[in-house]
Design a protein around this nucleic acid. Structure first.
Lengths: 215, 215
DNA sequence: ACTTGTCCTGTCATGCCGTCAGCTTACCGA
DNA sequence: TCGGTAAGCTGACGGCATGACAGGACAAGT
């Protein structure tokens, strides 16, 4: 499926080459966490990895290309987010727990990968299809599950007919993502992490079921 | 209040200087709309404005500094967002209309300024205090009004005690902002603009009042 | 030791960055 | 009218990042 890892000029990368390549990706990842995206330079990444810019360009067309690679790896891990919703109930107390665990897992994932996700978000917002598709890929698991949950409740008549499940799910996911990437903003605005989560869960529960949770 | 406009080396800018300065800002603004933030170069902005890079550096320390300037202007205009909530009711049909108009106004504002807001968002997410404060300034008007509305309903006993008004308001505002900057994402995901708005309004109404709107 | 293919880097042309000295232009008081 | 002064702009320059290439280092098999 993944084919072989190749250099920019078409050679297949061997063991050593793949190690170098991965080291470059790791260093880039670190740099993205510590300095603004706009200021991340190839030469810095290469230096940090103990190699030269020329080597970098053997494996990646540019910084953006390398970021896409990292994001791709992260997207694969992000598939695990589906588990947060797989086979969960939205009724009664179980529903409240589902909402809480979703919020928890989502914020955790976002916090762990915030540097890359920032860049993916930016790229997507700028209209770059590659980043945009990647963002979809990451969010789709949660998004689809949520939309299904809404649609199901709708079929049972417990949610209004004129609700669009995809729109609601997408909005809720966007909310989670946005709050996650501005967590610091909240905290210094007088809202603490611990307070934030239950309120987010409340909003999610309200959005999905249309009702307040029974705790 | 605003003092005089000054160049980087301390001279006060006259009529002509201010015009040049503004032209540079306008051109930068255009460039941000048409190319990725990372690729916006001083020399391109200067060329577009029919001047030289050296001139740019007379008025701004760097690209980031100029962006802050634009964002500041935008934040001033953004104060008008308060009107979307000033003295509005959240009860009954009026509440539904309030939610709708808030969504409408907010999306409109975001769409009009999306290029700058993308950069502000990025800067804030990266932890830059200047951008972070600016983002607050823009969102505060809406944020505070929403929080007040929630707190008021809470005082009347129509919203649960354990809800944190600031957290809910902040989350809703973050949702609006995120959805606005990924509007295209939704549309190509099968959710049309026109469908999106009422669903967003529903979520806002649910979040503020804890109840479904009466339409 | 020799060959082969992978892997890395020195080097180079190009182009942007950010600064400075110095030239031109506009304003103002005598 | 005529300097004087400050505003406004730019050419030019050292420095650095980019991206390409050719050639040297290295590992593995024969």
């Amino acid at each position: 499926m993944t084919g072989q890892v190749r250099t920019v000029d078409g050679r297949v990368a061997g063991r050593r080459g793949q190690a170098t390549r991965q080291k470059l990706l790791d260093c880039l990842s670190e740099m993205l966490s510590s300095s603004p995206y706009r200021d991340v330079k190839v030469i810095d990444v290469a230096r940090k990895a103990g190699t030269s810019p020329a080597t970098f360009y053997q494996y990646f067309p540019d910084v953006e290309g390398a970021v896409l690679e990292i994001a791709e790896q992260m997207a694969a891990e992000g598939a695990a987010l589906t588990e947060l919703l797989e086979g969960r109930s939205w009724a009664g107390k179980a529903g409240w727990q589902t909402a809480q665990e979703l919020v928890d897992g989502f914020l955790e994932f976002w916090r762990k990968n915030d540097a890359i996700l920032r860049v993916v978000d930016l790229g997507a917002a700028e209209g770059d299809k590659r980043f945009y598709k990647l963002r979809m890929k990451i969010l789709n698991s949660v998004n689809n599950s949520l939309a299904d949950a809404v649609a199901e409740l709708q079929a049972k008549g417990r949610v209004d007919k004129d609700v669009n499940p995809a729109a609601v799910a997408g909005s809720l996911v966007a909310m989670l993502a946005a709050v996650a990437s501005h967590q610091k903003g909240f905290s210094s605005w007088g809202v603490k992490q611990a307070e934030l989560k239950p309120n987010l869960a409340l909003l999610v529960h309200l959005g999905v079921t249309g009702r307040k949770p029974t705790k």
